[in-house]
Design a protein around this nucleic acid. Structure first.
Lengths: 204, 204
DNA sequence: TTGTATACTAAACAGTGTTTAGTATATTTG
DNA sequence: CAAATATACTAAACACTGTTTAGTATACAA
């Protein structure tokens, strides 16, 4: 029966409207400025309606987070396609930082906020896209370790080391701490630091 | 006249009471759970009274942040006293991570939250304790670069590199992202990663 | 004693996430 | 076709948040 399908489609459409409104508001006013009431106002429904489509605000943030990973994948396509493992790590690092610097709110949702994953038992599947990225990096690290016969034997430690460095850089940039200790040269400083970090590891 | 002095002392005492209550509540309920009304309730004054002693909530958070730096200095005393520059960097790294892991709320206030420094023009003096720490690290890096004649010539880049790594580790631990990608071994994983990072730089 | 300055607060404003109870509308059933 | 039910939605409330305003007692000075 076509009626039930139409109903279902309309339900999905409103859910999508909510998500798109949430996205729009977050991009305009930041994650702090995103509220259920503003979404409701934007889509011209009452706040209570939103709770018929999402369990709570965290569920909305979680879906936005997943959109964030899609966005990040676009930054990564060139890097992922690179054949040489070490060069791939360089490109991933650059792309990661570019994404982080250019998409503060998305980045926060994906790598910093604990709001989109309150339910601790569920958080491993909630963050499966992040885990996939980490695993990909770890595999690339394994390749690099073998090719360069690095001292570092554990590829997951090396992956965590790389991730910490770029994550730290992005977070220090977001919280303006870099700007404080070294004013007016954030961009170039970050590039130099990323470079220094990769040279330390791979360029012996 | 002793009267004016007594008045002034009493004013300072209430200000201190507010700060101590804020500290107590933050330690019990986290930074999210700290509210003006809870402070007011705790010290048995009205919320409005607090605004006679502090401009706004951010000013309270800023003073808490400064207490955080005092706390961190205690973790650092042994490291700061170390004579050898490279060993000093190791000890600073360990102390930094220990402080970060054991004092999530304090750490957030000092290195992540932008709330205690909204006033962008003022934020360099607001964060002078952080800048002093960074400068100390950078000086230690300079010593280390000279002693080991490292390729890396810019000590402030190296300092930023080190800082990013430990900051990233602490933040990934706080946001449970480490626990997600590598469950049930956070502590040892962090120590191994810190070690790998320092070996990469200094142990060629 | 009068007048002013100080210390404090009740209440309100404008927000926040979320829930409950109730109302229209649309669909299904007798 | 009418009655019963299911669906979609919302007004209003609850319990919070930071902050401001206007007003009230109290303590001190003239």
């Amino acid at each position: 029966m076509g009626l039930a399908e139409r109903k279902e489609r309309e339900k999905a459409e409103l859910k999508e409207m909510i998500l798109q409104a949430a996205k729009k508001i977050m991009l305009k006013h930041g994650q702090e400025g995103l509220s259920i009431r503003k979404i409701a106002n934007d889509i011209e429904y009452s706040p209570a309606t939103i709770y018929l489509y999402f369990k709570d605000k965290d569920e909305i943030l979680h879906e936005l987070m997943e959109l964030g990973f899609l966005k990040m994948n676009k930054y990564m396509t060139a890097a992922f396609a690179e054949g040489d493992a070490v060069q791939r790590i360089y490109l991933i690092g650059e792309a990661y930082i570019n994404f982080g610097l250019e998409n503060k709110d998305w980045y926060d949702l994906m790598f910093s906020s604990d709001k989109p994953m309150k339910h601790i038992e569920k958080c491993r599947e909630d963050w499966d896209q992040g885990m996939m990225m980490f695993d990909f990096l770890a595999n690339t690290c394994k390749e690099a370790i073998n090719r360069l016969s690095l001292k570092s034997q554990d590829e997951r430690i090396l992956a965590l080391q790389l991730w910490s460095c770029v994550h730290g850089l992005v977070m220090l940039a977001h919280s303006e701490r870099i700007e404080i200790v070294e004013p007016n040269q954030k961009e170039s400083l970050i590039k130099k630091t990323l470079d220094s970090m990769l040279v330390s590891i791979f360029d012996k």
